[in-house]
Write a protein that binds this DNA or RNA. Sequence first.
DNA 1: GACTGCTGCG
DNA 2: CGCAGCAGTC
Lengths: 257, 257
Amino acid sequence: MRVTTWNINSVRARLHLLGDWLDDRRPDVLCLQELKCRDEDFPAAVFEERGYNLAVFGQKSYNGVAIASLHPIDAVVRGLPVDDGEARGLAATTGGLRVVNVYVVNGREVGHEQYHRKLAWLGALRDWLDADATPGDDLVLCGDFNIAPADADVHDPELWRDRVLCSEPERARFRELLDWGLTDAWRHLHPDASGRYAHTWWDYRGRGFQRGLGLRIDHHLVTAPVLARTRGVTIDREARKAARPSDHAPVHLDLDP
Amino acid sequence: MRVTTWNINSVRARLHLLGDWLDDRRPDVLCLQELKCRDEDFPAAVFEERGYNLAVFGQKSYNGVAIASLHPIDAVVRGLPVDDGEARGLAATTGGLRVVNVYVVNGREVGHEQYHRKLAWLGALRDWLDADATPGDDLVLCGDFNIAPADADVHDPELWRDRVLCSEPERARFRELLDWGLTDAWRHLHPDASGRYAHTWWDYRGRGFQRGLGLRIDHHLVTAPVLARTRGVTIDREARKAARPSDHAPVHLDLDP
DNA sequence: GACTGCTGCG
DNA sequence: CGCAGCAGTC
C-alpha cells in the first residue's frame, strides 16, 4: 500500500511525464498539490485510464489539491481546515485510510500578512483534527507543509535561520500537529539523515537541485496505527531530474500489507 | 541544389523539430521568415553544427528573416525593399544565386491601414528589383508573400473572394513582380494543380490543416536562367504534420546541377 | 526559473 | 490556435 504526496506545480504542465510516472510508481493513493486548474480543467483521463478514482478540489491559477486512488473514495471533505475560497485542503477515506491532503500557505516572508495567515491556517488544521479525527484512526496527513521542521531538513540552516519555511513559530505549529498524535514518518525512519537526499523541494532558480540546495517541506504525518505498518518512506528524486519537472519531488509512504 | 523557403513562425519555438528536419531535408539554402527573435537570440548553433553559414536579420517579437546556406554567403542586404524598422527583407549571394528572402506585410484586412502598407511594400519590392537586379541574373525571390496568386491557390475561392491574401489589388502587385521577369516556379510545374496538396499555409484555428482549408502563399519566383535549371518544387507537408508545427509548410525548390 | 492569466497578432 | 511579452506568485 503506497500513499504518495507530490506538489506537482501545475498538473497540466506535468502531463508530459505524469502517465509514465504513474505506470512506474503505481501509488495506491496519490495526493497532489498545486494543481493550478479548475475542476473542469483537471486532466482526469490520464488517471482514469489507469484505474484511478478521483477527488479533485481545484482552483483557477493557484492552489488546488486532488486525491487519486486505486481504491474506492468515500467521505470526501473539501475546503479544510477553513473554507476561505482557497483550495488547499482535501480529505477522503480510501483503501482503509483516512487521507488528509494539504497545501499549506507559503507565508511569503516572516512578518508578512501571509505569514500570519499561515500560522493561523496551521492552527486551524490542528483544530480540524481535534474535531474530525482521533489519533487512533488509520490516518495519514500529507502534503506540502511549506515547513522544514528542523535544521537537519535544510541544506544551510544558518542561511535559512528565521526565514519563512524555517522560522521557529512555523516549526512550533508543526510540532503542535505532531503533538495531536502524529509522527513524521520519514524522520522516524531516518532519524539522523540530512543533506540532498533528505530534501523534497529545490528552487528552480540557480539550479538548486543540481547544487543540492534543498529543503524537506513535503511530509507524511501518520497516526500510531499507520506508523506500525510503515515499511519505508522514499523521496522520489528521479521525478525531479525529469525534463521540465516540478520543483518538488514526490514522496512515497509504503505500508504493509 | 535545393533552395527552401519556410515561414517558421518563431525559430525558437521550432527547435524541437528543426535539427532533425535539417538533417533530413538538407537544403543548400534555407530562407526563413517570422523568426520572432532578435539577432542575438537566434539559435545559430543548430545551423552551424550542420555546416550552415548564416545571415540573420532579426527583430523582437515579430517578423525577422534569415538565410542559412551550406555555401559561402556574400553581398548581404538587410532591410529591403524599405528600411522602416521592420525586419522583412534580406538578400544574399550564395551558391551562385542571388537569393532574396521576403516576409511580405500581411495587411490585416482589405482597406486597413496595413493593407495599404502591404500594397506599397510590394510596389517598393518591384522598384528594388528594378534598381538592384536584372532579369538575366540567377535570382530567386522567395518567402511568405501573404498572397494567393489565383483562385486555384485557395481552398474555397468564393469564401476568400476579395478578402486579404486574395484581393485583386494584391494579386495585381504580385503579377507586377512576375512582369519584371520572374516565374512562379511551383505554378509553372503544376499548371492545373489545386486543393490541399497545392497549399502552403493553414490557419491554426479550426484545425485548418486536417480539414484541408489552406492557401498557397509561400512562393519561389525565379528568373529565366533559374527556371531553366528547375527540376522540381515540393511542398513539404510532412513538416506541417509534426508536433507543434509552424502554420506554414516549407517549400523546396530543386535545381540542377 | 517556471508556472499562471492577460493582451496583441495573424 | 499558438506565437510573443508582460505582470504576479513562489
